[in-house]
Design a protein around this nucleic acid. Sequence first.
DNA 1: ATCCCCATGTAATTTGTTACATGATTGA
DNA 2: TCAATCATGTAACAAATTACATGGGGAT
Lengths: 181, 181
Amino acid sequence: MDVKTVCLGMLSDGEASGYDLKKHFESTFGHFFAAGYGSIYPALSALLADGFVACREESQSGRPDRKVYRITDAGRQALCHSLNTSKPGHKVRSEFMATMCFAHLMDEKQLDRLLQHRIEEADEYLRMFDEIESTCMHDWPAGKKFVCGFGRALTEATKKYIEENRDLVCERPATQRSASG
Amino acid sequence: MDVKTVCLGMLSDGEASGYDLKKHFESTFGHFFAAGYGSIYPALSALLADGFVACREESQSGRPDRKVYRITDAGRQALCHSLNTSKPGHKVRSEFMATMCFAHLMDEKQLDRLLQHRIEEADEYLRMFDEIESTCMHDWPAGKKFVCGFGRALTEATKKYIEENRDLVCERPATQRSASG
DNA sequence: ATCCCCATGTAATTTGTTACATGATTGA
DNA sequence: TCAATCATGTAACAAATTACATGGGGAT
């Protein structure tokens, strides 16, 4: 499942512009599937060429024109087929964990910074989940609620683990740390 | 932090061949940082060109020759510098979650398959963590232990969440499900 | 003044994946 | 006899990120 398919899925919930989709990627999809304009706009062009979406241009006063995309019947069919036949993966690429493997080569300040940063990022996500739950989640389909809860569970587990285990890598005798660079 | 740096880090724990590194990627690093031969061998060539590793060719009877790489002083310095200055990310790319967002467009069999598959993958990882903990973890540095525990915590949270919430998306009235394709 | 929001897109670059190419040995 | 393990590497391909390019309106 690539950016193209995710865009198609988003459009199955209602029409939107590329700019709108980016917002959606940043907010509700941000914690598990990132995409920038450089992927979204080409994806929409490809979907249009495939006949999976249709496009209408909207003029706005004092604003740039926007291209509003909506899914077609063919698009809906292709989406369903894709969802029902694919074997979706779940990949983590954590430079953080890779770095932590070599904690003994880092100085304590950097180590602290990294752990602190990760906790703060977790807090940001938790605030986001709170907001989603208190505003738009009520009219979401079950699948999206499941995913939101999943994100929260993983984020909470992350925060808890780091808080409970940071002394495993910090607060060691200074001699174990080597000088940097 | 790219494959090149992770390879360099692995070599800071002791010399190894590209084949050995691949094994390492598959086992202990597999749950958070994937790399295939297509990335590893070019990475080693680049590290050699940079002077960050040295290489010795070993002839073996009845086996292909192996190129054993070891880190140099310059390499160790570069690694430390990289570890102490980088801002490592932690990215999740979950086609699984993206797919689950559109659970209402899937048939129940596919939904069951996906959830089951995810639980099985979690179980595999848990077995891996068990093995690591009972065999090699005792002589690991604190950072690696931290990462292993982190992986276990996330995997357990994953399994728990899916088991406790799968009825959110499954076992719904059949009318909510649309036909596929 | 300056920055952010709106809004679209292309091009270059980076990065990683997959397939290809080779070949002896060992165990089932 | 067949598959797996050991062992290295290249080339083609796919995919996403980053930078570039443009420009008015509104808030501080």
